[in-house]
Design a protein around this nucleic acid. Structure first.
Lengths: 213, 213
DNA sequence: GCAAATTTTGACCGATTGGACAAACGTTAG
DNA sequence: CTAACGTTTGTCCAATCGGTCAAAATTTGC
């Protein structure tokens, strides 16, 4: 839909495409654990298996890498919310939204942390997008949810804060992963923790949102 | 209780006490928005209104400032959970725990972000504390909550993930503050957003946790 | 008031940072 | 094969980094 926004999309050779992907993959790893200012071009270059000048041949500035990474991230990151559909059973829609968001936290934790890092630092590079595209999308979906509430399909509450709480609880398992694993310990903190989380969140949100008769 | 753990607690002059506080206040501001690696001694010194060598007279290394800040933070940060009491009505206890956590997100957002930054980057400096003190405390309180569930006082669910979800939803309003404000917009994103959040979270957790008859 | 102790400063250091650049090396099309 | 183009590298640079140090300025104890 709104994809492929790396705007001028200049023609690129095969090698350029491959190496740029390699760099972005390495940069995701580095940026997501150290933040923008805490990461160095050398670290990214080493993680990508190339020299610093070589990396700078593909991305002229450190910021360009981060910007490209962010642009790609945002579309896929908001995809689950975009899919939240007016048609279809409300509780089912919400349940699968929560499930999809939790799966993203499990399968793309680095993307989640990259995003969290950016927001934590005041979102200097994506503020316009938050106030524009994101706000529009959330307002739109909040209206859908509000419709469900007025129709008595789900319990009445604040749709915006409902969305926030879904973001918070699901992304928590990516952003605070080390804490979750440390607290759960070696036994309960293994691979099963995401299924436990899924069960818990379904109970919390879905049972909690069932219409009160 | 477990306070005042700046271990050797060397004798300090009046000036030392004041200046150290000034530095810690400035460092909290800087660290919480840029992370450890992303912050410089110069930034902290400037925020504290003193020269870099002067700052280094009070804290010999950058890490010492961060460490002191962390030690102070952790005790106050976990205080609300420590207060969760076996005696007293379960739903009331949980309600006030949630309220206290949300108040902390409102009143000490920088502390929340400092903590989030540390965890995001893999908790290199506080890992032992997570696996030790924190895990012990959470296990203890999870047992209390489990007792309430067995007694039929609250709905049965996973106590650990319940605690995680309370952390996630409340701290979200500090850590992701810019996003929350951007999405809510100038009107709904004002000072009232914490009261809206409090109402929403109470409904989500308390109504959701009422025992099913 | 004065000597000792504490606090502040400017100058400086080696290491690391983001980035420039020309030369060397590969690849590819004709 | 070769000329043009794309890729890679080593070297270098100015700025910034965390931190030192001796000397100057200030505060403190008597």
């Amino acid at each position: 839909m709104t994809a492929d926004m790396e705007i001028p999309a200049p023609r690129r050779t095969r090698i350029q495409q491959e190496k740029r992907e390699l760099i972005l993959e390495a940069a995701l790893e580095v940026f997501s654990t150290s933040g923008f200012r805490g990461s160095t071009i050398d670290q990214i270059a080493e993680a990508a298996g190339m020299s610093k000048p070589n990396l700078l041949y593909y991305f002229r500035r450190k910021e360009d890498i981060h910007e490209t990474l962010m642009q790609r991230l945002l579309d896929t990151w908001l995809a689950p919310l975009r899919e939240l559909d007016d048609i279809g059973d409300p509780l089912t829609e919400l349940r699968s939204y929560i499930r999809r968001k939790l799966e993203m936290a499990r399968d793309f934790p680095r993307e989640s942390r990259l995003f969290a890092n950016e927001i934590l630092q005041g979102a200097p590079r994506i503020m316009p997008m938050l106030e524009g595209e994101l706000k529009t999308l959330v307002d739109e979906k909040a209206a859908v949810i509000k419709g469900w509430m007025r129709a008595g399909k789900i319990a009445s509450t604040d749709p915006w804060h409902l969305i926030f709480s879904i973001w918070a609880t699901t992304q928590h398992y990516a952003d605070f992963d080390v804490q979750v694993r440390a607290v759960l310990g070696p036994d309960r903190g293994g691979d099963g923790r995401f299924e436990d989380a899924a069960r818990f969140l379904e109970q919390l949100f879905i049972d909690g949102l069932k219409p009160k008769i």
